[in-house]
Each structure stands twice: as structure tokens, then as C-alpha cells.
Design a binder for these strands. Structure first.
Length: 717
DNA sequence: AATATGCTAGTTTTT
DNA sequence: CTAGCATATT
């Protein structure tokens, strides 16, 4: 069989990785070095050349997008459907394993996935039930605590609280929250992983089964794995003949704050003694861009070491623009985009990257004024929208009466006169008898424990759900979904409560939801696992929240955070807001170890650019309602001068705009002043007027001080 | 139960 | 400044 197509267009390093015929492998894949290609060709090579059964290959990614792309490309290369081959996200794979062995995992066979929004609600509910102060135990923080413990593989009993009462209380919330999940048959995202690891750890037979089955385990974006994911890899790789092939880039590890452990790359080297292959040839960017990115990342310590190069052109210098303020920065960028479009190139070839979402507004406004189409990444995805979640809440309750989270969500949406007091009574009854809210409601009704209004309202609600449940038995998924939306009166609810355009958008999304249900095709695996059509649909809604914005692909300028940009590429890239405090973010500067992650983020941003790269910063910026004077980001300073073109050389703030402080009156914002004791500094803030004014000054040597104008003697410098 | 007002905090995100 | 949330009011 001719297999040359599998290796012909690969470079030496890529080919070495693809054809490696023994042992484990770590591919250190630089940005734009063709790592997906290597993974895909590796899988094809194993199957076609080494005659490995597709059943024996497990390929794991972090996102559905990556999994889908990999599957598509494998099928394209092999020219056959990739049946038997397991390709999926960590969570998708774990979900599958848990479905297959729900009994051994001590899970209700009809368990459903609790997504972050419903997890948050359940955690908040738990805190309230425990009569704890939400100020002292913010649900967000507790949710993060629980997930972080789970990501570390830790159950409440094993958390070291060192007698710290706050920690002990959080552990207790974790415990009670977990109990509520179990009773309702709900599994959160982290739990999918943790249960699977526990299942395999405590079940030697099951473990051996998977170890025997998977002779090849491949992991994408290995630098993003957390403790639990690494544990899973180690378990699966415990089999004598299992070979592990991981691809990653320590320089692109930007998710440490959510539990990713770059150290896993080093651990992998120590634990598995893999062959290490470096992919350093880049097929994306110009020499200049790569050199600049290399020089920035070079300031980090403890790297595995890697130097990107290209056979491509030198290219233009990296352009650095120093704007007077954030408005001028946005104007500049939009002006350059206009030039780009006038030269005949496309909006979709442009990426505007920034550190935090709040920065998008400026660019949205400026692009709107210039009438340039744009798309902002982030925000809610289809299955995360409130109306979709509300409708799915009904489906969940219809499907599983034990699902208290779903019950809470829909019992009074739309408002049907079931108030907080009524629901509180139901919760108490449910807890007292250790039954679900649904059963408690039915018993309360049957026992005649409820008074007039509440009884009628709850009676109608129960009737509604039971009617839907009866109908569910007689029609298909699309039919049920349609009836849920019709009978629940959700659309009326939005129309009455919200402005027309908003409500119409919700209505369209609900129509879309019905269409999605109608067109839903259950996978063979789900069917074999004994899942109902509805259960599959709900699972997919939780596990794959859908496209961002759900809009059809348009030719738009792409606005996104640096984090979202990972994995993407654009001919023209702007990195905006390159200021100390903003990027690197202040919080990352303060916490040790976080700065190098910020630098990796800068590296990720720069390596998105194919042809042209602009970095810009504003000398003054309104932030939290105050005008701040920042310094350019240290990352700008780390660029080699010979690769840079300064579009506007940085001016001293006082020369640029600010009139000099004049005797008598108040100095201007940004003015340079001199104080007898503190020396020279820059005026940051002025509050009030005349002699009572308070002036904040950033002294070059003494740091930031607040002074009162009437007492402090300030000389213009 | 829906609306008005006041207060506070303010990175990054996938599953 | 402003969005999101909690409390107060009708």
C-alpha cells in the first residue's frame, strides 16, 4: 500500500513524530508548526501502516472544536469514517465511560450533566439552605473552590482545612452540594472527570479493560491538562503495551489560573521517558514576527526551550503605536483597518486582540462609526442563553422528576404565583422526607397541606408537567420541545417583560431550539449506552454549548481576548492596551509566578500574526471612571529595537498634551511637577477644586501620594 | 411580583 | 464609568 501521502509533505521533525515506532512521545509543538497535522497524520499512520485497529486509539482534546476538526481531518486522510476510533474532549470521553459503567461509578443510569450556570444556582441554593451569609461565602467563590478541589481529585473528607473555620465551612458546602447532586442524578463538569478517575482507580477490571483496549493514547494541548486529567492519562497508560503520544507547548500555557499545570509537561518527561520531538519550523508568520516573539518569551525561565524559525520572508517590522489616550488608540487601529480594506483585503483577515473583555467596547464603537463589520468573540453561546436554558429546564424536569435544579429553574418561570415562600415550604418538605422537590410537591398537594393560591398554582404546574410527560411518550423530540415552549407560555413571558426586539430574539432562539431538537440525531454510542433520545439531546446541550453568537459566518473583523485567540491566525493582528497594569494585568504582577503566564499570553498573541503585527498602548486611559497614566507594557520593552518601527515615538506626557503646571492654579492631569520632599512626579488624579483639591501624584522615587493642594507646594518641573 | 434605587467591584474560559 | 446584584418600594 502506498502510504507516501501520509509523510510526503511533512518536515523532518514532523515525520519523526508521525512515524515513531516505539515508546512514548512528547511533541513540543511551537505556534503554527503544524501540530494538528502531526496528530492527524500520526493516527492515520498507526492505522494504515502499523495496522493498529481504530478501536485501539484514543485521542483527547480540550474543546469540541478541536475534536471535530481532528475527526474530520482523520476521515479525510483515511477516506473512511473514523468508526471505532475514540476522538473527543476529556469531558466527552469521561462522560462516555461513565454512561457505560454507571453502576460501578455509583451513578444513576439516567444521570444528567449539570453545567456551570446550574451548578452556580445549586451552590447558591445550598449556601442559602445552610443559612450562611452570601457575603462571607460568595457562591462564585464557593463554586470555584469546589471545582478546584475536584480538579485536584479531592473529596470533602480529604481536604486539609488546618482547622480554618472558613475552609471547614466551604468543605461542608461541598459535601452538601454533592449530596444534592447525587439525589438529583446530576453530575457537574469536574465530576465527570473525577468519577471516571475514581472508577478506574477503584475498579481494576475496568481499568485493565481500557488499558488493554487502548494501545495508543494521544493528548492534544498537553500543557493545559490539570491534575485530574494527568491522573487519567497515567491510569490509562498503566498497561504494558500502551503508548502515549502528547502534543503541547509549554510556552503557550495560559490557563494556569483555572487549574492547568504546565508542570505536567515536565512530569510527563520524568514519568514516561518519552522521545522528545521539537516542532520549531513555523508556517504562519514572517521572520520578524517570530524573532520578536522569540525574544519576548526568552525572558521566561524554566522553559523546555524552543526557537521558532521560518523559511518565509523577513516581512515588515513590528509596529508600535503610542496613543495619547484609549480613543486615539481605537481610532488609529480602525484607520489602519480602513487602509487594509482599501488595499483590497478582507475584514476577516484582521484580529484585534486585547487582555480583557471590557476593552472591546472602544473598538466596537470605532468600527461602528467607520461602518466596518465586526464580530466580538465571547459572550453567551446558543445553549447558554437564558431562554434556551429555561426551555431545556422543562425538558429536564419532564425527563427526570428527580432533577431539583431543573425544578427550581422553571417552577415559577414564567411567573405563575409560586413565590419564594411556597418554594421554601416545598424544600423543607423535600428535605424532611429526603425526596425530590417534585415528589414533595405532589405529596403536599395530595395531603392538602397547601392553602388556596399556592395550591392552585402548584396544581396547575404539576398538571402542566404531567401533561408534557404524557405527550413526551407519544411524540418525537422536536414535538416535545415545541409543546414545552407552547404550553409553558415562555414566549408570552418574555414578550410581556422585555423590550420587543429582545423578546423577538428570544423567540427566534426558541424556534431554533425546536429545529435543533427536530434535527437531532442520536449517536450510535449513545444509543448503545441505552440513552433515550432526550437524554442524549440534553447531554449534548450541556457538553457542547454551541457556536459563539450562533451567527452565520460573515466577513468580519474579529475582536477577541488574547485567550480566545489561541489556536487562531490572522494576516493582520493588533494587540491593543499594551500597558503595565492592563497587560500584564495588575493582579498577575502582584502574584508571584503569574507574570510568566502573562508573558506567554503575549507570545500567544504575537504568534497569531501572519504578515503584520501592531502593538499599541495609550499614555492615558480612563479606567473605572478615573484617568490613569500608565507606562508601556514591559513586553513592549522586551522587543528588540531593530525589529520595531515606532509609529509615534513616545512623548513625555507633559510635552504631549498637558500644559505645564502654572503657579497658583491647579496642575493639569498628567503634568510633571516637583515637590520639595518627594521630588519629581506625574499628576495622576485631581479631586475637588481650589485649595481643597486632593491631588494624586506618582512620584518617580517616592511612589504614589495623595496631597492637598492648599498645603503642598508644587512647582512645575 | 414587578419595578426603582443604591451599592460595589472591576482578568483571562472550557467543559 | 457601568453592569450586575441586593435591597427597598409600590
Amino acid at each position: 500500500m502506498d502510504v507516501s501521502h501520509l509523510i510526503d509533505d511533512l518536515n523532518d521533525a514532523q515525520r519523526q513524530a508521525v512515524t515513531l515506532d516505539d515508546g512514548h512521545c512528547l511533541v513540543l509543538a511551537g505556534a503554527g508548526s503544524g501540530k494538528t497535522r502531526v496528530l492527524v497524520h500520526r493516527i492515520a499512520w498507526l492505522i494504515q501502516v502499523e495496522h493498529v485497529s481504530p478501536m485501539s486509539v484514543l485521542a483527547v482534546t480540550f474543546t469540541n472544536k478541536a475534536a471535530n476538526e481532528m475527526r474530520g481531518r482523520v476521515e479525510e486522510l483515511l477516506q473512511i469514517p473514523s468508526s471505532g476510533l475514540w476522538i473527543g474532549t476529556f469531558h466527552g470521553i469521561c462522560h462516555r465511560i461513565l454512561r457505560l459503567h454507571s453502576a460501578e461509578a455509583n451513578l444513576n443510569p439516567t444521570f444528567q450533566i449539570l453545567d456551570s450556570d446550574d451548578q452556580y444556582r445549586l451552590v447558591r441554593r445550598t449556601i442559602r439552605e445552610m443559612q450562611l451569609d452570601e457575603g462571607e461565602f460568595p457562591p462564585r467563590v464557593v463554586q470555584g473552590f469546589i471545582n478546584a478541589r475536584k480538579d485536584d481529585g479531592v473529596r470533602p473528607d480529604h481536604i486539609e482545612h488546618h482547622g480554618n473555620p472558613l475552609t471547614m465551612q466551604m468543605v461542608e458546602i461541598y459535601r452538601i452540594y454533592q449530596g444534592a447532586c447525587e439525589r438529583s442524578g446530576l453530575v457537574d463538569f469536574a465530576e465527570l472527570m473525577l468519577r471516571t478517575v475514581e472508577l478506574l482507580r477503584d475498579n481494576p477490571n475496568r481499568l485493565r479493560h481500557y488499558q488493554d483496549r487502548f494501545s495508543h493514547v494521544m493528548i492534544d494541548e498537553f500543557q493545559d491538562t490539570n491534575t485530574l486529567q494527568y491522573a487519567l492519562v497515567k491510569l490509562l497508560a498503566g498497561g504494558a503495551r500502551t503508548r502515549v503520544f502528547v502534543v503541547g507547548d509549554d510556552d503557550q500555557s495560559i490557563y494556569g489560573w483555572r487549574g492547568a499545570k504546565v508542570e505536567n509537561v515536565q512530569h510527563f518527561v520524568n514519568d514516561f521517558k518519552p522521545e522528545i520531538v521539537r516542532l520549531e519550523q513555523n508556517y504562519r508568520s514572517t521572520q520578524t514576527i517570530l524573532e520578536a516573539a522569540n525574544r519576548v518569551i526568552d525572558h521566561n525561565e524554566d522553559r523546555m526551550g524552543k526557537n521558532l524559525w521560518t523559511e518565509g520572508e523577513q516581512g515588515d517590522p513590528v509596529r508600535v503605536f503610542s496613543a495619547y489616550n484609549e480613543d486615539e488608540e481605537a481610532e488609529f487601529i480602525v484607520g489602519r483597518i480602513q487602509d487594509w480594506l482599501e488595499s483590497g483585503r478582507k475584514p476577516s483577515e484582521v484580529g484585534v486582540l486585547y487582555r480583557s473583555n471590557a476593552q472591546s467596547r472602544l473598538f466596537e464603537q470605532a468600527l461602528l462609526r467607520a461602518d466596518i463589520p465586526y464580530r466580538v468573540y465571547g459572550g453567551l453561546r446558543f445553549f447558554e442563553r437564558a431562554e434556551v436554558r429555561d426551555a431545556l429546564g422543562y425538558l429536564r424536569l419532564v425527563h427526570n422528576p428527580l432533577d431539583d435544579a431543573a425544578f427550581e429553574r422553571v417552577v415559577n418561570v414564567p411567573a405563575r404565583g409560586i413565590g419564594e415562600r411556597t418554594v421554601a415550604g416545598l424544600r423543607e418538605a423535600a428535605r424532611a422526607q429526603d425526596i425530590s422537590l417534585w415528589d414533595a410537591t405532589r405529596r403536599q398537594l395530595a395531603a392538602g397541606n397547601l392553602t388556596g393560591r399556592a395550591r392552585n398554582a402548584l396544581g396547575a404546574f404539576v398538571e402542566l408537567i404531567e401533561m408534557l410527560r404524557a405527550e413526551a411518550g407519544e411524540t418525537d423530540l422536536g414535538g416535545i420541545m415545541g409543546r414545552i415552549i407552547k404550553r409553558s407560555d415562555l414566549i408570552q413571558h418574555y414578550l410581556a417583560r422585555e423590550p420587543a426586539d429582545r423578546a423577538e430574539a428570544r423567540q427566534e432562539n426558541l424556534d431554533e431550539l425546536v429545529r435543533a431538537a427536530e434535527n437531532f440525531d442520536q449517536s450510535m454510542e449513545d444509543e448503545q449506552a441505552g440513552l433515550s433520545q432526550t437524554a442524549s439531546f440534553l447531554t449534548q446541550a450541556a457538553l457542547e454549548a454551541g457556536e459563539h453568537q450562533g451567527e452565520k459566518w460573515q466577513d468580519c473583523v474579529q475582536l477577541m481576548t488574547l485567550h480566545s485567540a489561541k489556536g487562531l491566525e490572522f494576516p493582520l493582528v493588533f494587540m491593543a492596551g499594551m500597558e503595565e497594569g492592563l497587560f500584564p494585568h495588575q493582579k498577575s504582577v502582584e502574584e508571584p509566578g503569574r507574570l510568566s503566564e502573562e508573558r506567554r499570553l503575549a507570545y500567544v498573541g504575537m504568534t497569531r500574526a501572519m504578515e503584520f503585527l501592531y502593538l499599541s498602548y495609550a499614555e492615558s486611559r480612563r479606567l473605572h471612571g478615573q484617568t490613569m497614566f500608565g507606562r508601556p507594557s514591559r513586553f513592549v520593552g522586551e522587543l528588540p529595537p531593530e525589529l520595531i518601527e515606532d509609529i509615534r515615538p513616545q512623548l513625555n506626557v507633559s510635552q504631549a498634551r498637558a500644559p505645564r503646571a502654572s503657579g497658583g492654579g491647579l496642575p493639569s492631569l498628567g503634568a510633571r511637577v516637583r515637590h520639595a520632599k518627594f521630588g519629581a512626579g506625574t499628576v495622576l488624579t485631581i479631586e475637588g477644586q481650589g485649595d481643597n483639591a486632593r491631588i494624586q501624584i506618582n512620584f518617580d522615587d517616592a511612589g504614589q501620594k495623595w496631597l492637598v493642594a492648599g498645603y503642598a507646594t508644587l512647582e512645575p518641573e
